[in-house]
Structures are given as structure tokens and as C-alpha cells.
Design a protein around this nucleic acid. Structure first.
Lengths: 339, 339
DNA sequence: AGCGCTCGTGGAATCGATTACACCGACGGG
DNA sequence: CCCGTCGGTGTAATCGATTCCACGAGCGCT
């Protein structure tokens, strides 16, 4: 592969001049410029990004470590992150943690080894020493969706409290009183928060959230299935199950179907995170929708701000309830999703 | 950030020795080794992958350019690719083309600039000059799922012909005679092949595939919706629609729902690519399942073979039909999906 | 004792860029 | 006419690793 030296030889100038042309530095004669450009063309020269990064100490690359690529929510997030990054002149390297802290660490480590300019993380757990060290060492970093308390890093996320309140109000109005939740890992902020918000919202209606109605999931489908089975085996099973993410809702669907039960007749179901398929499931699923694309873009902007020396601030955007049929029908017509 | 020089100074040896310890070269004294290791520990030293890559001319990184991250099929593919690559000591950088040739080129270019060791591509179109040049220039490359004819590059893909034949037989047995297809872009091999296989299978039953029953989609949901609308507006609408990928099937579902029609009563639906949600849609969707994970792993193995100087061969794995309810019920019990 | 190994080590070249510094010629002002 | 300035250019240092080569010490063999 042609290097800058070859271009210099071909154009009859020094490598310095070639470099200046390529980085359009002002003081290059028109003549030299055209000769260099011609040489670049004939040789099909492309600058070696590795060498450039070594010299300039910047890679113009962002690392994105997400909890699970198979989760459509994170996939959409990744897409908007890449889009915004590209618009700002950065590339993105995605690492998929599969909800495993060890894999998360593996990716953080390789990304750091590659000297990415900044790191976007949706942490799978309470924070490994590795990540904490990186943050302390001054690696530009931003948390997205989930975060780690006590670390001085901007957080970009959705606020679901209000939407959860709306959801519980909706469920209460439909006559449901025994509400259960499939929670995410307690080590994640979203895992905790959603349970808290749910409990609080129940309280507002004078309802309790007994321990038996809190199932411990891990944000993956299989755990949703297992927890739902457990709920159905209770002497007094819940009337509603609220899954803290869409994959666990999928698992719940599996469990209900395996028993030959009907939603919402035998059990109502709602989920955090709205995805396109929820419109077409049997029945369509009531969900809390996050402004995923905007979250991704805001996170990139915050990170790039940090990288380029600007403050880079936290952002919190509201989530909203999208009512469908999985919790039962109102006697009177209600707002219906248009998605 | 500490460099190899700092480690050398701390350990009281030369950088050469440090490097040797790090790459466990045999001829290093036990004493030097422990001193170096200790220095590495106290400084928290991590080798700079950028510098290493420049010197060794290898990045131990694979580029993966997929057509659409929002498509669960590619997401699953990406996951298995990363998994296998990691097992073989490589990282993966994913580029999402969003089915746009210009974006695909953008990613191929940046990946090449980064001097990735090899490229895994599922081409969005018939092949840009850029990709052809790269292949000709000897960049290790492997096509996965889709490929570009006439380029000497291994292809790892699923063979769907037999499964499509099974599907058509199934549809025929159910009494359907007017079968339509939502095709993918003609510029993609999968776009063409699936239509061809469908036409051939129809022929075996003495059925035609009129032009009016071939809708031109682009593998994205919106096109599936649009094409399905077109089908429904025909004087003689088809009885079955076969979507060439899962996103277009989603679009078809949208269209059918918008008209207040029922599946399979008013229109039957089948799709290429099976995904978990198809079990829970209303109704569950009959689909052709690819061995996605195995495809991804085989592709990585072929690519790494090429990179490391071994032949690296093409692989074709069979797809299979998964019958669900979206095409109607058999009067007699039939094989039913277990997923 | 002397020769030739091997082993462990360090110095220095190298990868492909960027960029500080020096230099040279032309030009304008005093 | 001379000097300072500036535009255009090249030389060489540099980034952080790897690795070739040389060298010295120690050892075994004759």
C-alpha cells in the first residue's frame, strides 16, 4: 500500500508538503498542491490512520459499550450514536457486553488499548475497577441509559418515573390491583429505578409491592420466562406483570403461551422500552417508550464536548406511556398508539 | 499514559527487554522478567495498540459491514461474528450501511484506512469500485449472506432454495394459488435469488409468478408496507404474500392491520429470516430460518484463514422452513415450530 | 588454554504520518 | 541598495512500539 513517501516521490516534493496538502495547511503553492493531488490520485493513496493516530495522539474514534446487541433498544441506540458521531467526524467502535461484566471489561480494555478518544457506556453492573480507573484517569466518558453513581461522568438517560405513574394509573383504572414486576439486575441503575418508580406509583394508589411480586430478572428473555412461571405458580398470582425491558417481556410472552393462557384475560402485560414489534404481538403490548434516538445523539454530543475540552453536560429526557391492548380495554375509548 | 520507556526506566532495563517480556520471547532472564512485570503492575502500563499496529502492520481487527443494524438477522450475525473473532484473538469493528451504498462505501473506506486485517461484507449493492479494488488489491475479504458475483472472494451463506420449495408446497397444500413476493433490491444476490427460488418452486406446481405479484422492496419495513398496499389494491389481490426479509414482513403486517384485514383469513403471510418475535405476532408467522450463528462463525473462520495465509473456503448451509399459523391451518395436524 | 556456542541484553532502525525549525528567494519599505 | 518579512519548502525529530544486529559473559569441548 502506497505511503506518503511514495506520493512525495511521485509528486517530486517532500513528505512535509504532501502532509500539508492533505491537511490543507495554508502555505502550499497552487502548483505543488495540484501535483500532490495528482500523485494521490494515480497512486490511489489513502493516509494510514494508524500512523496518523500515533503521531497526533487522537483516533477520532468513540467506543460504545452496550449491554446487549440482541436488544432492539440498544441496537437503535447504537444506530443513532453512530449517526451523530459520523456527523461530527468520528467513528464508533461497538462492544457488546451481553450483560456480562467480564465481557464489558474486556471491551473497555481493548477500546482503551486502541486509544479511542472517548467512551460511551451503558454499564452492566455497579462498575468494575477498570472503568472507575479510566474515569479517574481522565478518559472522556459519558454514561448512557444506565450509569454508575458516584462517578463524575455526564449521564444521558430517560426519566421513566412519570410514565410509570401513568402506567400504574392506567392499570388501576382497568381494575387491576395485584401488580408484579420483572426487575432488572439490582446492580444496574435502570434495574433499581424501575422497581422504585413502580413501587412509588403503586403507593400513590394505596397498593403494596410485596416481595413475591418482585421477580429478579437479568434483562434477558430467558429470565422473563422463568420469573413469569414463578408468578403463575403463586397461590395468588398477579393480575399484571410489568417487565422492566422488552426482552423480558418476550420471555413472559413465552411463558404465558406455554401455559395456554391469554393476555390480557388471564394475565395483563406491560413493558419498559417500546419496540416496533409490540404493535403486532398478540395482543399489542402496552409499553413505556424512550426517546432512544435523541438519547444517543445527546450522549454523543456530550462526549464530543468533553473530548474537545467543553463541559459536556448530563441530559435527562422524558419517557412516555404508549397504551395498547395487553392490559385490557377501557370501557370508554382511550388514547391509542399510532405507531 | 505510561509508555514502554517508562516501564523500561522503572525496571532498569531497555525497552527491547520490556518488549520481549510482553511478547513472551524466550530469551529473557527470570530476573528481568519479574522486574518488568512488577514495573508494568505499578505503572498500570498497557501497550499502545496503535503503535504496535504501526510497527507490526497488523491490527488483529476484522471489519464487518452489515446492511442494516436494525434488522435482527444482522444483529444476530454480528453477535456471532464478534464471538468467534474474540475466540480467535481478533476484535471486530461494525459498520452499518443502512442499506445505502454510499454509507457502505464510507465504512469500507474508514475500515481500510484503519488497516483492519480483513473485511467481512454483506454487500448492499452490486459492488462499488472501492470494494472491487480492495478485493483485487488483496485485502483479505469474505462475503457473508449476500455476495458479489465475479469477485474471487469466499462466500458464506445459506441456501434457501429447498426451504422455499417446502414453503410453496406447504402453501399449495393449503389451497393457495395466487402467491406474491415482496422482493429485495435486484442489486443484491439475496434479493434476486429469493425471487428466482420462489418462481421455480411455483413452476413445480404449475403456477406462474406474474409481474404484478412481484413487489419491489428494499429490505426495509416501509417498503414492505408500500408493496403490500399495492398488492391489496390489485383487482385480483394475491392470497399469500412472501416477504424476502423480516423487516418487510413487519411492514406487510402494518399494511394489513391498517386496512383492518386478518391474517391468514384475508391474506396469508410468510417471511424469509426467522426471528423470535414471529412466535408471538398475531398470528405467529411462518418463516424460513437461517442458521445465522453458524453462518457468522463460519465466515470468521474463513476470513481468519485468509488472513493467516490459509485458503479460506466458501460455505453454504441449508435454511429450513418453520411452519406457524400465518398461512392458514392444515385440516390434519402438521409439524409445528418448537421455538 | 582457546575456540565457538548460546544466552541475555541494549542500541538503533523502522513503521507512516505530523510538525517545529531552518532556509531560501522575492518583494516592499526606508 | 539593503534589510526585514513572508510564503513556500525541505530536513529531521517525534509518537510507541518491534526487532535486527552486535556485543559481552559464561560455558563446554577439544
Amino acid at each position: 500500500m502506497a505511503s506518503i513517501k511514495d506520493v512525495a516521490a511521485e509528486a517530486g516534493v517532500s513528505v512535509a508538503t504532501v502532509s500539508r496538502v492533505l491537511n490543507d495547511h495554508p502555505s502550499v503553492s497552487a502548483d505543488a498542491r495540484t501535483r500532490v493531488l495528482a500523485a494521490v490520485e494515480t497512486l490511489g493513496y489513502r493516509p494510514n490512520a494508524v500512523a496518523r493516530s500515533l503521531r497526533t495522539d487522537q483516533t477520532r474514534t468513540l467506543g460504545l459499550v452496550i449491554s446487549d446487541v440482541l436488544n432492539p433498544y440498544f441496537t437503535e441506540l447504537a444506530r443513532s450514536v453512530e449517526e451523530e458521531a459520523r456527523a461530527l467526524g468520528y467513528s464508533v467502535i461497538i462492544g457488546n457486553a451481553d450483560e456480562r461484566p467480564d465481557l464489558q471489561d474486556h471491551h473497555v480494555r481493548t477500546l482503551l488499548d486502541r486509544r479511542i478518544d472517548g467512551l460511551l457506556v451503558s454499564p452492566t453492573d455497579g462498575g468494575s475497577p477498570l472503568m472507575l480507573d479510566a474515569a479517574r484517569a481522565g478518559t472522556p466518558m459519558v454514561f448512557v441509559d444506565r450509569w454508575i453513581p458516584g462517578v463524575d461522568v455526564p449521564v444521558v438517560r430517560a426519566e421513566g418515573r412519570a410514565a410509570v405513574r401513568d402506567l400504574v394509573a392506567h392499570l388501576h383504572r382497568l381494575g387491576h390491583r395485584r401488580l408484579a414486576i420483572i426487575a432488572g439486575p439490582a446492580a444496574t441503575t435502570t434495574g433499581q429505578e424501575r422497581v422504585e418508580a413502580f413501587r412509588e406509583a403503586l403507593g400513590a394508589h394505596g397498593l403494596e409491592l410485596p416481595d413475591a411480586y418482585i421477580g429478579q430478572g437479568d434483562f434477558q428473555a430467558e429470565s422473563g420466562r422463568r420469573v413469569t412461571e414463578g408468578f403463575l405458580d403463586l397461590a395468588e398470582p398477579p393480575e399484571v406483570v410489568f417487565a422492566a425491558d422488552n426482552l423480558m417481556a418476550l420471555g413472559a410472552l413465552d411463558a404465558v403461551r406455554a401455559r395456554g393462557l391469554r393476555i390480557p384475560g388471564d394475565l395483563a402485560l406491560a413493558a419498559f422500552d417500546d419496540i416496533r414489534w409490540f404493535v403486532h404481538t398478540d395482543p399489542p403490548i402496552t409499553a413505556i417508550a424512550q426517546p432512544t434516538g435523541e438519547l444517543g445523539r445527546a450522549a454523543v454530543r456530550a462526549l464530543v464536548d468533553r473530548i474537545e475540552g467543553r463541559p459536556g453536560e448530563s441530559v435527562t429526557l422524558p419517557a412516555r406511556l404508549v397504551v395498547r391492548r395487553s392490559c385490557g380495554e377501557h370501557p370508554t375509548p382511550v388514547q391509542r398508539s399510532t405507531t
